[in-house]
Design a protein around this nucleic acid. Structure first.
Lengths: 195, 195
DNA sequence: GTCTATAGCGGGATAGAC
DNA sequence: GTCTATCCCGCTATAGAC
């Protein structure tokens, strides 16, 4: 008997997507350097060589994962701006952000991009993405520079709290902090974060 | 002629310190997985084998570096609270934080700790350290829960901006953002960050 | 489109001399 | 206390079959 079950033959575009989804999770869990193309391949259910062949290199794959994470933030913010349900823009943006980074793959991809600011390939991409989002909330959502900065700051605290998994702590101070961070909607927050 | 100059023979304690200092920089730049013991050795001016021998393993060395980074924040905040120079506590704390994370090793050690929140060994340590700092600024510095949260949020944005090296960008929007983040004292900020 | 096999390099850790 | 040499593993990337 063959050691490998029969694999599904997929169109290139779909295969790319499935690899990107797996890579987002694995890069999120282990970081860029810590992740291996073999782990990503296993998560995607294909061979290691095929992962590399599809994207050319591990670095190119990471850059693509990072680019998509930023794209999803931009798209979510555009939607939040357009979808005026009566709440202030800032609240809509905050909600959209929390919904997005509740996906641990996206959340941790972002943190790894930040920490790779010195990398010649990844650094510039990270800076461009971050500034694009700053401009988005300032110019398109119409926040003042001060408000935009404040909004980003709270977003970065959300990242930290979620990454540290403080939302799963029973420490009363942690509960207080998490409640502050997510604007009181703790139940919603915990549900999204997968507890 | 020998290819290696004569090395200084140091007491074990001093050598440990010099390795820890070098490791903080290198782990900061490349992350835990991305850093090599050889890079750390070169930065410390000793051989790769000696780095490993001194700490037993690369992982043990990283844990020690991370532990020290958290300790330094707590110490700096205690000092900022005690040293009342007339400015509001929050401003003293903010200044102390910027001074500290201008050291890229400390800054990135923190980011790596955050992103390792799921790690069974490092996760709990990270949560404890973060909550200890929340309590410190709330109970000892006397900030309200809201103020404390806001303070931490801006700290996390400082982390991000510094990690991404936005303070080195000529993009006018980046300059605007950095100026917001560091309260207008751009020159000081750039100097600290090593530009 | 997808695999197996393997080349080739780089890294952590160990042994042992000085 | 510190080095050199080296083992051995794991990883990325390539070659080539199906």
């Amino acid at each position: 008997m063959s050691t490998m079950e029969t694999r599904q033959r997929l169109p290139a575009a779909e295969r790319r997507e499935s690899i990107l989804a797996a890579a987002s999770v694995v890069f999120g869990e282990r970081g860029y350097a810590g992740a291996t193309t073999d782990q990503i391949a296993t998560a995607a259910g294909i061979s290691q060589a095929y992962v590399v062949r599809t994207f050319g290199s591990k670095e190119a794959l990471f850059v693509e994962v990072a680019r998509r994470a930023v794209d999803r933030i931009e798209a979510a913010f555009w939607a939040a701006i357009a979808d005026d349900d009566g709440r202030p823009v800032r609240q809509r943006l905050g909600q959209a952000y929390i919904d997005l980074v509740a996906d641990r793959g996206i959340l941790l991809s972002l943190l790894h991009i930040f920490s790779l600011g010195s990398d010649p390939a990844i650094g510039p991409a990270g800076r461009d993405g971050f500034m694009a989002i700053y401009r988005l909330v300032r110019d398109e959502a119409g926040l003042s520079p001060e408000e935009a900065t404040d909004f980003l700051a709270h977003g970065m605290l959300i990242n930290t709290v979620l990454a540290l998994q403080l939302h799963g702590s029973d420490d009363p101070d942690a509960v207080e902090l998490v409640t502050q961070v997510c604007g009181g909607d703790l139940v919603h927050f915990r549900a999204l974060a997968g507890d």
